[in-house]
Simulated scan of single mutants.
Amino acid sequence: MPRIPLLPEHPADPQAAALFDEVRQARGPDFPMPHLYRVLATAPAMFRGWLDFAWPLRQNAHTPRPLRELLILRGAQISGTAYEWAHHVPMALEAGVSQAQIDALADWQASALFDGPQRAVLQLADEVTRGPAASNATLEQLKQSGFDDAAVVELVLTASFYVCVGRFLQSMDIELEPGDDALSASMRTADAPPTANPPSGPVH
C-alpha cells in the first residue's frame, strides 16, 4: 500500500479535482488517473508545479524523444524504479525505440545496438542516476556527439528530474497500476549497485 492514501479518481477537494480535469482534457476523458498523480494531488499546489515542469520537459524539449526515453528507462533500471519503467516502455516504443534496444539496456556498453549519441546519453543516465553528477568527460562526449549547449541542458535536466521521480515513487511506495506487472518484470537491474538501505516494501 502507498504510504499516502490514493485520492479517488474524482476527489472532493476542488483544487485536486480541477487538476485531474486538466489532465483528462489533455489525455482524454476516459484516461485512468495514474497512482502517482493520485498521491501528488494530495498537495494540489505541488501537483500543479509538477505538471508545469514535467509536461514541458517531456513535450517541449528539442532533443529527440527516443533519446530521452532511453535515458529515462536507463535511469529507472539503475534505480530499480519499476513504476517508472512500466510507464515509459510504451512511451519509448511509441517514440521509435526498438524492443531489442530496451532488452539490451542492462548491458548497453557491450551492445552494438546503440550509436554514438545514444551511448553518450546512456552514459549520462548512468552517472546522474548513480550520482553525484555527470562527469566532464561525459559532457564533452555529448558535445562531440553533436549536442549543443541547449541540448546538453535538456538532457542533464531530464536525467536529474527522473532521479527525483524515482526517489518520490519509492519513498511513497507507490504501487503499479493493474496490468503493469508484466512490464515491470521486464526490467533488468543486475548491473545496478546494491543500496545500503533497500526499501521495505515493493520496489517501484
Rank of each mutant, 00 (worst) to 15 (best):
I4F: 05
P5E: 01
L7N: 01
E9S: 13
E9P: 10
A12Y: 00
D13T: 09
A18N: 02
L19W: 08
E22R: 15
V23M: 14
G28R: 00
D30N: 11
P32H: 08
M33K: 00
P34G: 02
V39G: 00
T42R: 13
A54T: 10
A61K: 13
H62D: 12
T63N: 03
L73R: 02
R74W: 01
R74A: 07
Q77N: 06
G80R: 07
T81D: 11
A82H: 03
Y83R: 02
W85F: 07
V89D: 11
M91I: 14
Q99V: 11
Q99R: 14
A100L: 03
D103M: 08
L105K: 06
D107G: 08
D107T: 15
Q109L: 04
F114R: 07
G116K: 07
P117N: 03
A120C: 03
D126N: 11
V128P: 08
R130N: 05
P132Y: 06
A133Y: 11
E140V: 10
E140L: 15
E140Q: 15
K143T: 10
Q144G: 15
F147P: 13
V152W: 02
V152Y: 00
V152Q: 09
E154S: 05
T158R: 01
F161K: 00
C164G: 07
V165L: 05
G166M: 02
R167K: 14
S171M: 07
S171P: 01
I174D: 00
E175P: 00
P178D: 09
G179T: 06
G179S: 10
G179I: 06
D181C: 11
A182I: 03
A185M: 06
A185R: 12
S186Y: 04
R188T: 10
D191S: 14
T195D: 12
P199W: 06
V203S: 15
H204V: 14
